[in-house]
């Protein structure tokens, strides 16, 4: 499984995303650039230029028509995937930390940071998909301020009108987007900041990673913890592999808190855990710094990791990945 190295970012990666077909990979970084790559050969297809600060977050719709991005420049931008043209810019009082499309591609949810008298806010925008996409409403359809711990990650839940959030305190919650009410929460989902939240293919469960060194699988409807994957390092990202019973975890200590350099180079690992048995099954080394973001191909054929080192590594799974049956012949539903 020789990885393809994507070189194009000068600073650490913040989020990477495959499109639905998995032929494209989008990457956002602190160098203010957004790139799109062909996953089969690692060739760069294009860039999305216009932000003036760290791009914290990106998401692509299921038709690979629109890309949305959120940045430290307090802007959220909508892009034409094919041309790289910025179609619309929303401006906020503070940085945009997380964005996500809904399943039907007609709404976007975003989180803006708490800073200088501004509360952390969750906004939902209706997306007009008619024509070019340049005509969008400036005002959100819904907006609310989660009380208590600020939200760090979010996604649309499969249940009507509900937004799934992860928080700085380690809490996960479900909010009614129309009323802003917290309809359900799990205060003790994690003991520290939730750093990533990724849904299963059908959205009925999701994985979170946390600074508390664990990743956890949760039931979307009840927010109950289904599985726990404990590690010895703060985690920045966690992903669910479709078609195989694995979850992928990435993280690592910040460079500053690590005493040595050369001996540890290339030692930051993506950890593979058995999703159901909660047992670690393997590790893939490579990055020269903590792993900030992991994504799995929607068809399960490859995965990619983006590091603090500024590299994205695309790993195409080889045949043995599909053949090997750790722990026997049991059929595990996706």
């Amino acid at each position: 499984m020789r990885p393809i190295l994507l070189q194009g970012h000068e600073r650490s990666l913040t989020q990477i995303k495959y499109n639905k077909e998995g032929d494209l990979l989008f990457s956002a970084s602190k160098d203010i650039g957004i790139n799109v790559w062909f996953t089969h050969n690692g060739e760069r297809l294009g860039t999305y230029d216009g932000h003036n600060g760290t791009v914290w977050t990106i998401d692509v719709d299921s038709q690979s028509k629109f890309l949305v991005s959120g940045s430290a420049d307090n802007c959220m931008k909508l892009w034409n995937v094919a041309t790289g043209k910025c179609l619309y810019t929303w401006e906020f009082p503070t940085a945009v930390k997380r964005v996500a499309f809904n399943e039907d591609d007609d709404q976007i949810v975003c989180i803006t940071e708490q800073r200088m008298g501004y509360q952390s806010a969750v906004r939902v925008f209706d997306i007009n998909r008619e024509g070019e996409g340049t005509s969008q409403s400036k005002e959100p359809a819904y907006m609310f301020n989660p009380v208590g711990s600020k939200a760090t990650v979010c996604a649309f839940a499969f249940m009507n009108d509900l937004i799934l959030t992860g928080h700085e305190s380690g809490k996960i919650a479900l909010f009614d987007m129309k009323t802003g009410d917290e309809v359900l929460n799990n205060e003790r989902a994690h003991m520290d900041t939730v750093t990533d939240l990724q849904l299963s293919p059908d959205g009925t469960y999701f994985i979170t990673s946390s600074k508390d060194k664990t990743a956890r699988l949760h039931d979307t409807k009840t927010l109950a913890v289904l599985k726990t994957y404990p590690t010895e390092t703060p985690l920045n990202s966690a992903a669910i592999a479709p078609k195989r019973p694995y979850v992928l975890l990435g993280g690592g200590q910040e460079a500053m808190s690590v005493t040595t350099t050369s001996a540890r180079q290339g030692k930051f690992e993506t950890r593979f855990w058995h999703k159901v048995f909660e047992e670690e099954v393997g590790r893939v080394k490579g990055h020269f710094g903590p792993i900030n973001t992991i994504a799995v191909h929607p068809g399960g054929t490859s995965y990619s990791s983006g590091g603090e080192d500024g590299f994205v590594r695309v790993h195409h799974f080889d045949e043995s990945y599909w053949k090997v049956k750790p722990y026997g012949d049991m059929e595990i539903e996706d």
């Binding site: 059908d202 009925t204 469960y205 039931d219 289904l226 159901v276 059929e331 595990i332 539903e333 996706d334």
Partner: peptide, 8 residues
């Protein structure tokens, strides 16, 4: 797990 997945 499989029983739960079916309920989901």
């Amino acid at each position: 797990w499989n029983a739960w997945r079916r309920r989901c």
